[in-house]
Design a protein around this nucleic acid. Structure first.
Length: 730
DNA sequence: AAAAAAT
């Protein structure tokens, strides 16, 4: 609202709740002095200066926010590194107190006022009651699930609180987007800040939204506000319609893209035929041929690698692949004797690898390290949990070290290597592996990903770093701002390269790859590397060597696959039964809303669970994943944000509450368990009508899984949950 | 549908 605080704030506070108003003002004043060591803030607090205050506030606010965010970011980083187990206790305690503070804040009064006003405007208010409980959950920074569960239950008793909470929760969102908690603390201080927040957060709008229902949430997520205006008008009925209307187009698009790719690949391949023919014939064959073909299986025309590979793959691809690999790099006999040192890595790096739990190289590492050190472009496929991060990370560091030998670490030097990942969590995880390796030889890394304040990242860039590990959006953003220069990047790694070549990622990847130094070495890794990377390979790679590990088929897998055919109405209960167990369980849901709902459901049943999806702010995402990692929670319900790359040591059960649509997704999700040779089980729930689709998908994934009709209470559920006899006896 | 920038 344009009506800034002063008029509204002063009057509103009095009108609504004199108490709150008074308290708030006091608190603000006190805090500001403390916080605002900056000085100018003092003048602000006396909001009396009508006009100045707003201006100053505006100026000051950003600074405070950033500061707060920076702090948050640091805290996050620390907590991650130190495994700060504090959170739990702190969580609940910290969070709540914080909340308590908020209520006291002026904001609430203001918010409430807004809400009321807006509520009156819109009939949507009717929907609220039912929706509200949910929303808070969402925003529920802490554990949406719990908060959700709690609220509904508390519902009436708590409502007085709720009123407060909603305010909080609402506050949180805007905060989230900014940086979160620190801000919260700050808020009281920032009276001026609130407004912007309000306008952004628009609780009122949100109130409306709830009425809209879940479907909106995901959409709302970030860029909604402008859209929101539109949305209400559209209403639900319209959306689906649109969606359908659009689909035809979508269908066309894919078609186009496919059409184009093949075209490219066709055109290019002949040239490459020679190249690929050498090393390619072998594995790319498989990988490239298999799935792509299926998609557009018609084109026998698909040249070279494809043609060869197809033939070989279809006829006896297993043998072919094995031969190739063995011949190239991964001979079984050799691998046993290979050491990191013999592959060309220096002593410091070898020592750190040992500390990281990698005393000797895994096959994929034995295969790729030497060629990477030789400067070759490399495509590598190693199944989930086979050690790909070290396979590119260690030689990456070694290469940089060699190239910088004798040189001085200059302040503000430009980055020399870039590692790109599809999710922030994966970028973080990769850095956790590479950073210690790099530090051991005086090379610096920094993370560049979204959802957190830029300041710290930019600060690191100013000082000068050697390796950047991040996600495409923020990297492009900083490049556009002139804060990141990729022109001296000599090595680029694309982790989950096939995924990075998919529709939403391909173009950003192409733009980024065009920014790096000419002739920069390119490394593409993925457990499901296939022809999908052709667009990138054709444009950016030169005579790439292709590696995969021999014998990596399902027969050698340590994952046990099961498919439960269920009645839809039993789904919730069956899921609860499956997650009610001792080990760590990862549950995949198709949508953010469903992931959130399931986490809440489990939590309500006394099974501690948290959610991980894109509707959460980055702090919560990081925290919730950490909770599973350190065992404070044994159930994580996630969207496909957690499907690829994420490594949590002891996950022994993966449950797909919704079956994936693509075989690749199935492989990546299931790959969250059974890592590094450990055993694990993957359970997929499907309704009867999905049996055929599921069968086809499993065929593409080359996975054998028994289908079992299951009902609530069946023994198989106890077996899968690992309860077995104990429960029976009981 | 989800993810990836921010506001």
């Amino acid at each position: 609202m344009p009506k800034s605080k002063k008029p509204a704030g002063g009057r509103a506070a009095k009108n609504f709740e004199p108490r709150y108003g008074a308290k708030t003002s006091f608190q603000d004043r006190k805090r500001r002095p403390g916080e605002a060591s900056t000085g100018t803030t003092g003048s602000k607090s006396p909001g009396h200066r009508g006009y100045r205050a707003p201006e100053q506030t505006a100026d000051a606010a950003p600074k405070r926010r950033w500061t707060a965010q920076e702090k948050v970011g640091r805290d996050e980083a620390r907590s991650i590194r130190s495994n700060a187990g504090d959170d739990r206790p702190r969580r609940s305690f910290d969070d709540r107190p914080a909340r308590d503070d908020r209520p006291a804040r002026d904001d609430r009064g203001g918010y409430r006022g807004d809400r009321v006003a807006r509520d009156d405007r819109r009939p949507s208010g009717d929907g609220r009651p039912s929706y509200r409980p949910e929303r808070p959950a969402r925003s529920g920074d802490d554990r949406p699930a719990r908060s959700y569960g709690d609220r509904p239950q508390r519902s009436y008793g708590d409502r007085p609180q709720r009123d407060d909470r909603p305010a909080r929760s609402y506050d949180d969102r805007p905060q989230r987007s900014y940086g979160d908690r620190p801000q919260r603390d700050d808020r009281p201080a920032r009276s001026g800040d609130d407004r912007p927040a309000r306008s952004y957060g628009d609780r009122p709008q949100r109130d409306d939204r709830p009425a809209r229902s879940y479907g909106d949430r995901p959409q709302r997520s970030y860029g909604d506000r402008p859209q929101r205006d539109d949305r209400p008008a559209r209403s639900y009925g319209d959306r689906p319609a649109r969606a359908y209307g659009d689909r035809p187009q979508r269908d066309d698009r894919p078609a186009r893209s496919y059409g184009d790719r093949p075209a490219r690949s066709y055109g290019d391949r002949p040239q490459r035929d020679d190249r690929p023919a050498r090393s390619y014939g072998d594995r790319p064959a498989r990988s490239f041929d298999d799935r792509p073909r299926r998609d557009s299986g018609d084109r026998p025309a698909r040249s070279d690698w494809n043609a060869e590979s197809k033939t070989k793959a279809q006829q006896d691809h297993v043998d072919v692949v094995h031969e190739r690999l063995q011949a190239e790099a991964v001979q079984a006999g050799e691998v046993a004797d290979v050491t990191f040192s013999s592959l060309g890595l220096g002593d410091n790096i070898v020592r750190v690898l040992k500390e990281l739990g990698a005393p000797s190289p895994f096959p994929i590492q034995a295969a790729t390290i030497a060629p990477i050190l030789e400067g070759k472009d490399v495509l590598a496929r190693g199944r989930t949990g086979s050690g790909k991060t070290i396979a590119f990370g260690a030689p990456l560091v070694e290469s940089l070290l060699r190239s910088q030998e004798g040189k001085r670490r200059e302040f503000g030097r430009k980055p020399k290597a870039l590692v790109l990942a599809p999710t922030r969590e994966l970028a973080l995880q990769i850095d956790r592996t590479i950073q210690p390796i790099a530090r051991s030889v005086g090379i610096f890394t920094t993370q560049i990903y979204g959802g957190v304040p830029q300041a710290r990242q930019v600060g690191a860039l100013k000082k000068g770093v050697d390796i950047i590990i991040g996600t495409p959006g923020r990297i492009e953003d900083l490049v556009a701002q002139g804060k990141l220069d990729l022109s001296e990047v000599q090595i680029v790694v694309l982790d989950e390269a096939d995924h990075m070549s998919e529709l939403g990622f391909l173009e950003p990847m192409q733009r980024i790859l065009r920014l790096v130094a000419d002739g920069a070495q390119k490394l593409l890794f993925s457990a499901t590397l296939d022809r999908e990377v052709a667009a990138l390979v054709n444009e950016f790679l030169v005579e790439p060597a292709v590696y995969e590990v021999a014998g990596e088929d399902q027969d050698s897998s340590t994952i046990n696959h099961r498919v439960l055919v269920i009645d839809h109405r039993d789904k919730a209960e069956i899921l609860s039964s499956l997650v009610d167990r001792d080990g760590k369980t990862l549950v995949f849901a198709r949508t953010r809303a469903y992931a959130e709902m399931l986490a809440e459901q489990f939590d309500d049943l006394g099974i501690p669970a948290v959610a991980l999806h894109g509707d959460l702010n980055q702090a919560k995402r990081t925290r919730n994943l950490q909770r599973l990692t350190d065992g404070r929670v044994s159930v994580l319900v996630a969207t496909d944000v957690a499907a690829r790359g994420i490594h949590v040591d002891d996950i022994d059960l993966v449950i797909q509450a919704d079956a994936p649509d693509e075989y690749k997704t199935y492989l990546h999700r299931s790959g969250r368990t059974g890592r590094a040779g450990r055993t694990g089980t993957v359970v997929t729930l499907i309704p009867r009508q999905r049996r055929r689709r599921m069968t086809e998908m499993l065929e593409r994934a080359e996975i054998d899984a028994p289908f079992e009709e299951v009902r609530v209470g069946d023994d198989v559920l106890d077996e899968l949950a690992g309860r077995q006899l104990a429960d029976v006896d009981a």
